[in-house]
Design a protein around this nucleic acid. Structure first.
Length: 779
DNA sequence: CAGAACTCGTTTTTT
DNA sequence: ACGAGTTCTG
């Protein structure tokens, strides 16, 4: 063994060393937060290579491209770059996109197929719903897309769907009997457009491996050692791919932590990790329980939270680190003040402890919360970087440029075509596009192919001469770009596109600050492309082509753009923070209905996922964690009252330092229901001390807190909490304890926020929040 | 067909 | 609050 590697392996603790040196067979590593699982994965791969395993025969699947890149770099540092560069390491999506391109012809796809992002999928689904003349209030494109996505993640193809009466029945019951048709049309259209969506990258890989035994055998033989990180977040489709590929050698190593499973909402199946031992013979199980990241206070506080979950594997995370400070809990009157508190706290801590901006992270449940934090940081001149949200590549002006570029590579790409065919405006309106779509469907061709033949077909399509000319001009333009692209310089092509199409002129004409910012974004895109081309040329098996660039962009996340060379405070959702660590972490918006999210409190499993999310958030902190919440915050443009999250109470008080007393909640029990809708609560709020700490109130304990505020019922099963919510419809007769009987006139909102307009016999028309209103259904 | 005015849903998380 | 999608007007 390489002496450098030997030294590294010496440095591992015993629990880490065992799975690292476990060469053959199936093993599962349950790795608690901060227990050094990345080290184990890295060392294990280096060890395998030192044992004579060719890098070419190792497949390592990670959760983000960034994780893959960093791991590869570390391995290269041990075994040398020339060895490491042959490793197959990346996300499920990027690795299998690569394989699918190579094998595309077998599935009838072009090797340059487009990858549709979520927006492309949604637009196509909207278009299909419209073409089928369905009611868009019943067939909501987002719901339809979600449903199709979950079909694909469960490997339910269109055929499987129609063969399963339960599924068909379920959609019929949900008043969406034509779901199957939409699904079918969507799949057809993607196929004709030479496009795959994110789910297809996994589903089609399964199809490839199932239908073509020789292809399966090829990759089975190739990938003799398979490693999967973040196994708790794999979905069924990913599970099957791993299962198939590892079937021959069974040298499979999965690493994960059931306590950090936070992607069930997008189909991740926690059972994959819980049942791993049943899937392979002689599975060795290792546990990494020593946390090297966080202070004892943080580790134990996090443990006290996660213990509340019923569904979990047995494990006890512990640490030898010092106690550290208590977790600081802070209340602010509004979200604006919350931002100011966090900003000044960061400012002070940075000064007092001689820290960098990059030592701080602000984590939140929803992207919308970033605004208040940004404003406060900007006022304080604290540099920050927002991760996630609307990523660079999702901006309109960028997607417009990419639309043209996609069309050059794959002219069948229907969504790209529809996006750019009349932007900038060139006199090809909606009516014309509709005609093209109909004709394309009729001839079983792509829209672009119809446009190429517009001179022959135009008359029969009722398209006038002038429009025909405009269409063929467009085709000519795209073709000229294609010829330019054959020369090979992606950057040059993109630069020409922005000039020749008039995209930049269009934005210049606009002249507003937003327009100028958009031009700058396009310039940034071009610069990024130039760098990309240069970088790729250095590598052996890539050329820096336009197609490669588009592939990279389609699967890039915001994280991947992080050069890490600037010292900034990090702002991101908790989901995005998984796998990262920071000395100081601020978890903001610790409020009921926000965290846990109002959408995730209906069932125990949803609430447990929120709790795991909180666990992830807490365990990002190394030295100091802050929990902040507000009394009221702007949501949907309105100031709404808030109450502290149940998760604060779930932490044992001895780990907490309440900086602000909980005095304000003595008012809350009075406001048990919203029936006094006309009471102006903002006036009530003025009665309490405006600032400073009221001397009479000390630090309350969790018990006091529980008494002071109303606690929502703790659900014990996967049954909706309030049976009235969702059970009412227009005309339902209900009884209210004070207003007597009434008839439901209308409903608005959904889930926990559903309100009903009810006409009562004593009291007349009232609007009630069903969550609170104590209603009995009479008939 | 293009631009203005309007409505609607959105805020749970993302490859 | 805000953007995207839809409808109206020129």
């Amino acid at each position: 063994m390489d002496s450098k590697l030997e030294v590294y392996i010496e440095g591992l603790n015993e629990a880490q060393r065992a799975p690292t040196l476990h060469k053959d067979g199936a093993l599962i590593v349950i790795a608690g937060a901060g227990s050094g699982k990345t080290r184990v994965l890295t060392m294990r791969i280096a060890y395998l290579m030192s044992q004579g395993i060719d890098a070419f025969n190792i497949l390592s699947l990670t959760f983000t491209n960034k994780a893959a890149r960093e791991m590869k770099k570390r391995i290269a540092g041990i075994v040398g770059n020339s060895e490491a560069k042959n490793l197959w390491m990346g996300t499920f999506h990027s690795i299998f996109a690569k394989i699918l391109r190579f094998e595309a012809d077998k599935l009838g796809f072009p090797s340059n197929f487009t990858i549709y992002d979520t927006q492309d999928s949604q637009r196509l689904i909207s278009a299909i719903i419209k073409e089928m003349q369905l009611d868009k209030d019943i067939y909501k494109y987002k719901q339809v897309q979600n449903r199709i996505s979950s079909f694909k993640n469960s490997l339910i193809t269109v055929r499987a769907y129609f063969n399963d009466p339960d599924l068909v029945e379920a959609d019929a019951m949900a008043k969406r009997p034509r779901m199957g048709e939409i699904y079918k049309e969507y799949v057809d259209r993607c196929f004709k457009a030479g496009a795959m969506d994110f789910d297809d990258l996994l589903l089609r890989t399964n199809e490839l491996l199932n239908r073509f035994p020789e292809v399966l055998a090829k990759y089975q033989n190739r990938f003799q050692y398979i490693l999967v990180d973040e196994y708790q977040d794999t979905n069924h489709s990913q599970y099957l791919i791993v299962k198939a590929l590892s079937d021959r050698f069974q040298n499979i190593c999965v690493v994960g932590d059931d306590s950090q499973s936070i992607y069930a909402f997008r189909g991740a199946n926690i059972n994959n990790i819980l049942n791993f031992q049943k899937d392979y013979d002689n599975v060795a199980m290792y546990r990494l329980e020593q946390n090297y990241r966080s202070s004892k206070n943080i580790v134990e506080a996090a443990n006290s939270v996660i213990e509340k979950n019923k569904t979990r594997l047995d494990k006890t995370v512990w640490t030898a680190n010092e106690d550290g400070g208590q977790i600081i809990v802070h209340r602010s009157p509004t979200d604006g003040e919350e931002g100011r508190y966090v900003a000044s706290s960061i400012f002070e801590n940075r000064m007092n402890h001689q820290l960098m901006n990059g030592d701080f992270a602000i984590l939140y449940r929803t992207n919308a919360q970033s605004r208040a934090m940004e404003d406060a940081l900007r006022k304080r001149d604290i540099p920050y970087r927002i991760y996630g949200g609307l990523s660079f590549y999702q901006r309109k002006e960028i997607k417009d440029v990419l639309g043209y570029l996609r069309l050059i590579i794959n002219p069948k790409d229907e969504e790209a075509l529809k996006r750019v065919i009349n932007y900038p405006a060139r006199g090809i309106g909606g009516t014309t596009v509709d005609k093209l779509v109909v004709a394309a469907k009729h001839y079983g061709r792509s829209i672009f192919e119809v446009m190429e033949k517009i001179e022959q077909l135009g008359a029969s399509m009722n398209i006038n001469r002038g429009t025909q000319t405009r269409l063929s001009n467009f085709v000519t333009m795209i073709k000229s770009f294609q010829i330019l692209n054959d020369g090979g310089n992606a950057f040059e092509v993109a630069e020409t596109v922005t000039k020749k199409t008039g995209l930049v002129q269009e934005l210049k004409k606009d002249g507003t600050p937003e327009g100028i910012a958009r031009i700058e974004n396009i310039e940034e895109l071009l610069n990024g492309m130039r760098d990309f081309v240069e970088e790729q040329k250095q590598l052996a098996d890539t050329t820096g082509s336009l197609a490669e660039f588009l592939e990279d962009v389609a699967l890039a996340t915001d994280m991947d753009n992080d050069k890490g060379d600037e010292d900034r405070v990090a702002l991101m959702t908790i989901h995005l923070a998984k796998g990262l660590e920071f000395p100081f972490v601020y978890i903001v918006g610790m409020e009921e209905d926000l965290f846990p999210s109002a959408m995730s409190m209906n069932t125990r499993s949803e609430l447990e996922e929120e709790r795991r999310l909180f666990y992830v958030a807490l365990t990002r902190a190394e030295k100091q964690a802050y929990l902040t919440y507000t009394e009221s915050r702007y949501r949907w443009g309105k100031l709404v009252d808030a109450e502290p999250s149940r998760f604060i109470e779930e932490i044992d008080d001895k780990y907490l330092d309440y900086q602000t007393p909980m005095q304000s909640y003595r008012y809350k029990p009075l406001m048990d229901t919203d029936i006094f809708g006309d009471v102006d609560k903002s006036k009530l709020r003025l009665k309490k001390p405006v600032s400073g700490r009221p001397p009479s109130v000390g630090t309350p304990t969790g018990d006091q807190l529980r008494k002071l505020r109303k606690i929502k019922p703790t659900d014990t099963s996967d049954v909706p909490i309030s049976s009235v919510v969702g059970a009412l419809k227009r005309g339902t007769i209900v009884e209210h304890i004070r207003f007597g009987r009434g008839i439901v006139e209308g409903l608005e909102g959904k889930g926990q926020d559903q309100k009903a307009e009810i006409n009562f016999e004593n009291g007349g028309l009232k609007k009630l929040l069903l969550r609170f209103a104590k209603l009995k259904i009479i008939e």
